[in-house]
Structures are given as structure tokens and as C-alpha cells.
Design a protein around this nucleic acid. Structure first.
Length: 584
RNA sequence: GGGGGCGUGGUGAAGUCUGGAGUUCACGCCGGCCUGUCAAGCCGGAGGUCGCGGGUUCAAAUCCCGUCGUCCCCGCCA
């Protein structure tokens, strides 16, 4: 008993006369009465099979998505009836035996991709959704990406090592996903946010080069590019510095882009410092598929009469502008940008439109000297019709406001182009809106200079870097701290006191004290990478079984209540109001 | 935690602002016809708690209040 000996997508007129057996799903039925055409789809593609209903019982019963097996003779299609749209369009199979392996109910949604379908319905019947060409392509792309990663890294002598997924909770950073312990009531495992400390332990353990396709968990609110669980290519190398990481990740990316898109990725990938990225693009994840950079204009206004600008400069602010190009915007739309800027915390925003005579049309035009106007035009490379936006404020606010407008007005000529960029020299701390400092990385990142970190934390630079693709943070990495003394001092500066450090990370400090090699590493978000390569905006499109924004899997109904006995074994007693809620 | 969009036969939409009979369009589904179709075509048919609850009104898919679900965004994601 066989189901098939040939794949549908491989049939061609060259096989004319061959008897083949093909199995798959009924993509579509075209019943002509005296002849029935069925598009038979399997994992390889579609082939048309022709059935004479007078000779084969059951042909009239076929419906969409029936699972069938057919045996028949390959024949060239009659002249004029070839289908150029179809890979196999020069041929067809004249069926001599038809077996319905499994019928299908009427579908809950249409599998053709011309009309949209509510995502909840798709997820509830994900197994049907996965039959759609673009989902099938997503799964293939994902597999190809992982395959390329493994191939490049195996070739280079990396060891694929699995690390535990039931680990110790370390409450810094994202919220942990917790798992109760049956043996010690009230104690919990955490699912890893990343294999960070374990891969560092592997370095100490003499594993020279490590990688893992690792599932990671962060219990924060979802976005189009964030799920509760996600997959990372995690890697680390001993006796490594930054350049080793860059070189390795670039080789991986070349392999992945080749495998998934068949394109050659040019290396080295360009680099931009965090400082420059923030100043020129207003973000640490610049979309460089188009330029439209923010330019420094402070010097032009050194002696300006315009009070808003002169006052800002005296207060230590910067004046920067951006040329958003030719736009069709009404006066009220332009004024709307001012309101947007104010909502973002800026004191204001100046818009200006370059006129045919090269003067500026702007609410503040009368305050600007001819020299200032020509300076603006020169630095923003502005010609007639160009719309210019200028903000005078702290560098952080200017970047936030203009960076947002840049993304709103800017648009790549080619949306499918891939623009990778390394963002380097991240600060140890990032400034918050209220002027406070928060750690920009995990506490195992090596500072460039520990003394600088202690004495001048605001300026301290970390040996940390991100890889950005088309404005999306693909991953980040760093050179790690490899001696316990530095690690202790960094904990202190980050506000983790000795006692807490000892309690949470004492085991790790101990490990560091046994001859730790200098090491560095990186992690790449697989879901995000594949989604960009597939031109998908949403990572759920490249995840076979994703969850909704509230963490629900509509297919299986997880999460779900569990038995009282299960809870009792774990020593878990629900609060009365939770219990009531659960039982209602 | 906050802001916004959406929820109408199986699917996608229109109708909601400005209340007046579950009305419409496309797809799908069921039946019939049809021997070269390929988004097949033609004819006929079935299919509804307008997310749910409450309120206003002679009258609610439509207005008001609440609630649930979902999507996008902010916060959050060291």
C-alpha cells in the first residue's frame, strides 16, 4: 500500500506517458460535468489532475481540502490549455484510480489569500492556516534560516550545547515566566529570558565556541514583534573581542540571507556609533533603507535674534533639523506637527517650506536672517518645495521628535532591500525622560573603563552592540566581564548591593574566580530576522503556533485552569476571589 | 496600567454618524446544468442572538452605560 511515488510540484510534460501516484489536498475542483479538473496540492506545489466522472466513482464527491491519493498517467495538456501561472502548467495527470484518504468539513475560512481573515479564526484553525502558501513559505524560510546558521557555525567548530530551561529567577530585566516546584512548595523555577549566564559558564567550562537555537521567555506585554516565547540564535566565544563577534555574526547573516532569499549580503556590515545614531536618526535602531538624517543646526543660530532658539542655546540645548522632502501638507497639518512635538515633551517645533524663490514660508520666517535661512537650506540640502522641521531642545527630546517624524515621512525606495547596521558603543546607562539613569544592558556587560563607570556613569560606554535590520533590533551582544572584582563593582554601580548580588549571583561570582577566559557573544532574534526576510510586519506570521496579545492560544485553549489536586501537590492555594473568578 | 481601531449568516465587507421590517455586495456552502476548466460559468437554494448585559425610545445593528474578545500603539521589554 503506497500513497504516492511523486510530488505534485515536480510533474512536467517530460514525464508524458509515465504512470505516477500523487497524494495531497484538493486545492480546488472545477466540475465541468463530463470532465472534472482538480488542482491537487502537496508540500511541493500544485498539479492539475483530470478525472472522467463516468469512469471513476467519487469524482463528484470531491470538495476543497479533501485529502486524496490519485494514480494516473502524465500527459501534455492540449494545445491552448496550458496554464503559464502554474509551475506544472504544461502537463496534467489523467486519473485512473482515485482514493479519498480523508474528507474535510466545509472550511471555517477560505484558504486562498485574496481576502483577509480575522487572525483569531486563523489561529483557532492554525493547521488549516499553515496550508496557505505564505505560511508554508514562512515555515520553509525559518527552517532554511536555522539550517544556514547551523551550517556556518558547525563549519567554524562551534559546539551546539543545550542549557536548562528551568532555571533560577533573577528579577532584573523582564518579568520572569515562573514554574512552581513540587518538591519545595513556594519555590519556583524561572524559564530563561536568555541562556546568558549558562553560556558564560560554558566559557569558564572550556567550551571554546558555543551556540544554541534557544527558546526564551519574557513575561511582558506583547507587540507585533514580541511574543511571550521567542527563539534566539545564542552564541559566545572564548578569547573573543568585539571583532570576533562581528565577523561571526556577519558570516551567519550572509549564510541566512543566501539560504532564505538567494541574495548575496555584502560585508562588512556598516557600523554607526550609538551617539551618532541617536543624533542623526533619533533612535538606537535606525532604518537606513533611506537617509533623511537629522542635521545639527546649532552653529547657524549662534547669534540669532529668534528668542526661542537663542534661549534654547543659552540653556545648553541643541537645535537640529530634518528635511522631510516634498510633501502635500495643509497649514493645519503642519501645525499639527507642532502639537505632536509638544505632546512628546518638546517646547515646540518650527516648520518651514522652501519657496520657489528660496525664501522660507514659516510662522517664524520673519525672525530669521538671510544668513540663517541660507544656512538652513545648505545644511538640510533643501530645494524648493522641501518641508523642513526644526526643534530646539535637549538632544534626547530633539531626537525623539525628529526621529519619529523621520519614520513618518521617510520611505525606502525599495521596501524589500535589507539594510543591516551595527550600532556600537552603547552607553552603560540610558537617560530617562525625568533625567534619571537606567541600565542599558544586562549587568554582565563589560564597560570600556571601570573607573570611568564609577566616576562618571553618565558618560560611561559599554562594550555592547546591537545588530539592526531595517529599523528593527535584531539582537544584541557584548564583551562580558570576566573577572569577579569588576563584576562586583559593576553590580554596585548598577545599584545592586553586595548582599543582593551575593544572594542572586554569588554562585556566578564564584565561577568567575576560577580562571575565566575573556569572552564575548551575541544573540539574534530568529522570529524577527525571518519576519523581515519574508517581508512580514508581524512575527506571528513566521511562528507556527503563536499566542494572542493576552497570551492565549485560541487553538488549544491555553492557559487553562488545572485540577485542585495538581495545585495541592504544588502547594498552591488560590486566593478566594481568584477561585471564584475561575469557577464562574 | 493607559490610548486608539474593530466585533453584522461560514469568510470578508457595506449599513451605525442622521434610530424605522435582518437590508445589501463579494466569496464560501448545498442542489441542478455543463467534456478543456484553471479565481471556471450559468440557474436555484439554505444559512443571523448584528460579541454579551443593561438602559433610553412607540421603535435600537444604529444612541447611552457597562462588559468580553481581538488588533495596533504608549508604558513595560536590564
Amino acid at each position: 500500500m503506497t500513497f504516492r511515488d511523486t510530488y505534485a510540484g515536480t510533474i512536467s510534460a517530460e514525464q508524458t506517458g509515465d504512470t505516477v501516484q500523487v497524494a495531497g489536498w484538493v486545492d480546488r475542483v472545477r466540475d465541468q460535468g463530463g470532465v472534472v479538473f482538480v488542482d491537487l496540492r502537496d508540500a511541493s506545489g500544485i498539479v492539475q489532475v483530470v478525472i472522467d466522472p463516468g469512469e471513476l466513482a467519487g469524482a463528484g464527491d470531491l470538495r476543497r481540502e479533501f485529502c486524496i491519493s490519485v494514480t494516473g498517467t502524465v500527459q501534455r495538456r492540449p494545445a491552448g490549455s496550458e496554464n503559464a501561472e502554474l509551475e506544472t502548467g504544461d502537463s496534467e495527470i489523467a486519473v485512473s484510480r482515485l482514493e479519498i484518504l480523508s474528507p474535510a468539513e466545509a472550511l471555517p475560512f477560505q484558504l486562498d489569500e485574496r481576502s483577509g481573515v480575522d487572525e483569531l479564526v486563523r489561529l483557532k484553525y492554525r493547521y488549516l492556516d499553515l496550508r496557505r502558501p505564505h505560511m508554508a513559505a514562512s515555515l520553509r524560510a525559518r527552517s532554511a534560516a536555522v539550517g544556514a546558521m547551523r551550517s556556518v557555525l558547525d563549519e567554524r567548530g562551534f559546539l551546539d550545547v543545550e542549557t536548562p530551561t528551568l532555571i533560577k529567577s533573577t528579577p532584573e530585566g523582564a518579568r520572569d515566566v515562573l514554574v512552581p516546584s513540587r518538591h519545595q512548595h513556594g519555590h519556583f523555577y524561572a524559564l530563561p529570558q536568555s541562556p546568558q549566564l549558562f553560556k558564560q559558564l560554558l566559557m569558564i567550562g572550556g567550551v571554546d565556541r558555543y551556540y544554541q537555537i534557544a527558546r526564551c521567555y519574557r513575561d511582558e506585554d506583547f507587540r507585533a514583534d514580541r511574543q511571550l516565547e521567542f527563539t534566539q540564535l545564542d552564541l559566545e566565544g572564548a578569547f573573543w573581542g568585539r571583532e570576533d563577534v562581528f565577523e561571526t555574526i556577519e558570516a551567519v547573516m550572509v549564510g541566512v540571507v543566501k539560504a532564505v532569499r538567494g541574495e548575496e549580503l555584502a560585508t562588512p556590515i556598516r557600523r554607526i556609533s550609538y551617539q551618532e545614531s541617536m543624533a542623526r536618526y533619533g533612535t538606537d535602531k535606525p532604518d537606513l533603507r533611506f537617509d533623511m538624517a537629522i542635521e545639527e543646526l546649532s552653529d547657524i543660530f549662534a547669534t540669532t535674534e529668534f528668542k526661542a532658539f537663542s534661549g534654547a542655546l543659552e540653556a545648553g540645548s541643541v537645535i537640529r533639523g530634518i528635511n522631510v522632502g516634498q510633501q502635500e501638507m495643509s497649514r493645519s497639518a503642519l501645525d499639527g506637527l507642532v502639537d505632536e512635538a509638544k505632546e512628546a515633551g518638546a517646547r515646540g517645533l518650527v516648520w518651514a517650506v522652501v519657496q520657489a524663490d528660496e525664501t522660507l514660508r514659516s510662522p517664524v520666517a520673519k525672525f530669521l536672517s538671510g544668513e540663517e535661512v541660507s544656512g538652513i537650506r545648505r545644511l538640510l540640502q533643501a530645494g524648493p518645495g522641501d518641508h523642513l522641521l526644526i526643534v530646539a531642545d535637549s538632544a534626547r527630546v530633539v531626537g525623539e521628535v525628529l526621529g519619529k517624524q523621520r519614520l513618518k515621512f521617510g520611505s525606502p525606495d525599495d521596501h524589500e532591500v535589507l539594510e543591516f547596521v551595527w550600532v556600537t558603543d552603547f552607553p552603560v546607562f540610558e537617560e530617562t525622560a525625568d533625567g534619571g539613569l537606567v541600565a542599558a544592558h544586562h549587568p554582565f556587560t563589560a564597560p570600556v573603563d571601570v573607573e570611568e563607570l564609577v566616576n562618571n556613569p553618565r558618560e560611561a560606554v559599554a562594550q555592547a552592540y546591537d545588530l539592526v535590520l531595517n529599523g528593527l533590533e535584531l539582537g544584541s551582544g557584548s564583551v562580558r566581564i570576566h573577572d569577579p572584582e569588576t563584576q562586583r563593582r559593576v553590580f554596585q554601580v548598577l545599584g545592586i548591593d553586595d548582599e543582593t548580588a551575593e544572594q542572586r549571583f554569588g554562585w556566578f561570582l564564584t565561577a568567575l574566580s576560577y580562571g575565566t577566559p575573556p569572552h564575548a557573544g551575541f544573540a539574534v532574534g530568529l522570529d524577527r530576522l525571518v519576519s523581515v526576510l519574508q517581508n512580514e510586519v508581524n512575527i506571528r506570521e513566521v511562528i507556527p503556533f503563536p499566542k494572542t496579545q493576552t497570551g492565549v492560544d485560541p487553538l488549544t485553549g491555553s492557559p487553562s485552569p488545572v485540577d485542585e489536586t495538581q495545585l495541592a501537590e504544588l502547594g498552591i492555594d488560590l486566593r478566594p476571589e481568584v477561585r471564584a473568578e475561575r469557577e464562574s
